[in-house]
Simulated assay, not measured.
Amino acid sequence: MAFERIMGLEVIDDKEYQYYREAMEPLLKRFGGAFGYDFKVAEVLRTKTVDNINRVFTITFPSEQVMTDFFANPEYLVIKQKHFHSSVKSTTTIALHETHDE
């Protein structure tokens, strides 16, 4: 079992967002997490939010607690402050769920 989060973002600076990804992935791996799917979205046909979405991805962790610990980690928060806030206008949690390893 693992815990997966499906996210939608409005990325407003692709270059800075890529810096964010590159900086946070080593920490993500140390927590046992990984990205699964990752899409740049050209058109959203149906949504439950007023926020725009142009990027959709899945991120998986060994458990919900590990996910919580990762996003609260001081090292992650520094990376987020440096790169994420200036590159992403909005975030939308599409789904959170347990998965079965394939």
Rank of each mutant, 00 (worst) to 15 (best):
E10S: 10
E10N: 13
V11W: 00
V11T: 00
I12T: 06
K15W: 08
Y17F: 15
Y17W: 03
Q18N: 14
Q18M: 09
Y19I: 09
Y19R: 09
Y20W: 08
E25K: 07
L27P: 04
L27I: 01
L27V: 11
L27D: 06
L28F: 00
K29M: 09
F31S: 01
F31C: 01
G32A: 06
G32N: 10
G32I: 03
A34W: 08
F35D: 11
F35T: 12
F35C: 07
G36E: 00
D38S: 13
K40G: 10
K40I: 12
V41E: 07
V41Q: 01
E43F: 13
V44G: 00
R46G: 13
T47D: 15
T49K: 03
T49P: 11
N52H: 12
N52P: 13
I53H: 07
N54D: 10
V56T: 04
V56N: 05
F57T: 00
T58V: 03
I59T: 07
I59M: 02
F61Y: 09
E64V: 08
E64R: 08
V66C: 07
V66G: 09
V66W: 06
M67C: 07
T68V: 10
T68C: 04
D69M: 04
D69E: 08
F70H: 03
F70M: 02
F71V: 02
A72V: 01
A72W: 11
P74T: 01
E75F: 10
L77W: 05
V78M: 10
I79Y: 07
I79N: 08
I79P: 01
K80A: 09
K80I: 14
Q81R: 10
Q81C: 13
K82F: 10
H83I: 04
H83G: 04
H83S: 01
H85P: 08
H85K: 14
S87Q: 07
V88W: 03
T91G: 12
T91Q: 12
T91S: 05
T92S: 03
